[in-house]
């Protein structure tokens, strides 16, 4: 098999995985690496800096919307799985009805290893081992989350960051994706990304907003996100196929 050139810039991998984490859902990978910040400790820590990892999926502050994850306004003290209009995993909804409230104690446990505290959660974040950092992050969340969310937080306002990405997303989504075709094509995805929406080492892609989904694939196509396995799958997909996949996964409900 022919080798494909790996165009990794000689700057540290940590650096580009940080970029990657900010850009998308692959925060799992970031956390494995400690994202440079955590690993080296070279940069001063505070809650806001630590939140950068969360920002890939969560909005917080005035007018926050749901993205890949629910908005975090009012998160401290909020009941688990309780943001209206967000498609939670069954596990998260059950946690809420079991009375789990996101107080400091529970957030400390959850953020240490989300998949342990709420098995079956869609949050594809591996966890933050450092207790001090978790405490800093939660303290910052407590302050930052006092703002009012958007009136209709369920309506996503995801805007792809570059013109190229935006026009790609527009072109792809201009055609209506065929979910039946998407289901067949998805056979290739669900070998790794679980159809149930569970994330255990591989991010969940179930129920993602279509524009987010398309944009993420664009970033794999264009090396903004660097993962050889994903790139290989995506470069062989045409626009119709991407639209079909986005339509299929967008319709799936996590369980």
């Amino acid at each position: 098999m022919g080798a494909v050139d790996r165009a990794v810039h000689p700057r540290t991998l940590d650096a580009f995985y940080c970029v990657l984490s900010l850009r998308g859902i692959a925060i799992a990978i970031t956390l494995i690496f400690g994202c440079g910040l955590a690993a080296t400790g070279a940069i001063a820590q505070d809650g806001k800096a630590l939140f950068k990892v969360c920002k890939a999926c969560h909005e917080i502050g005035e007018g926050a919307h749901n993205k890949v994850g629910p908005h975090l306004d009012g998160i401290v003290g909020r009941t688990a799985g309780s943001v209206q209009g967000f498609r939670y995993s069954k596990a998260m909804v059950e946690a809420g009805s079991d009375g789990i409230v996101w107080n400091e104690k529970n957030l400390m446990k959850f953020l240490e290893k989300p998949s342990h505290f709420i098995p079956g959660s869609r949050m594809s974040y591996r966890g933050m081992a450092d207790e001090k950092k978790r405490a800093e992050l939660i303290a910052w969340l407590g302050k930052a989350s006092s703002a009012k969310p958007a009136e209709n937080p369920a309506k996503p306002t995801y805007i792809p960051p570059s013109d190229a990405a935006r026009s790609f997303t527009d072109v792809v989504l201009a055609q209506k994706g065929d979910p039946e075709y998407g289901e067949y094509l998805a056979g290739e995805c669900v070998t790794c990304h679980q159809q149930s929406g569970h994330a255990e080492g591989i991010p969940s892609i179930v129920g993602l907003p279509e524009d987010y989904f398309v944009h993420a694939l664009f970033e794999y196509k264009t090396n903004v996100r660097q993962n050889e396995v994903m790139k290989l799958r995506v470069i062989n997909l045409n626009n119709e196929e991407i639209a079909a996949l986005a339509a299929y996964f967008g319709k799936l409900e996590p369980n």
């Binding site: 098999m1 022919g2 080798a3 494909v4 790996r6 990794v8 540290t12 991998l13 940590d14 995985y17 799992a28 990978i29 494995i32 690496f33 669900v190 070998t191 790794c192 990304h193 679980q194 569970h198 255990e200 080492g201 591989i202 993962n227 050889e228 396995v229 790139k231 290989l232 470069i235 062989n236």
Partner: peptide, 29 residues
Amino acid sequence: NSTFISQTKEEDALRKANYEESVGWYTGI
């Protein structure tokens, strides 16, 4: 149609990510 293979002399972080990815793949498959 297209192929890839890991390269020699890769960063430790990438190799670790590969392993974590394989563990996720196992659960998935």
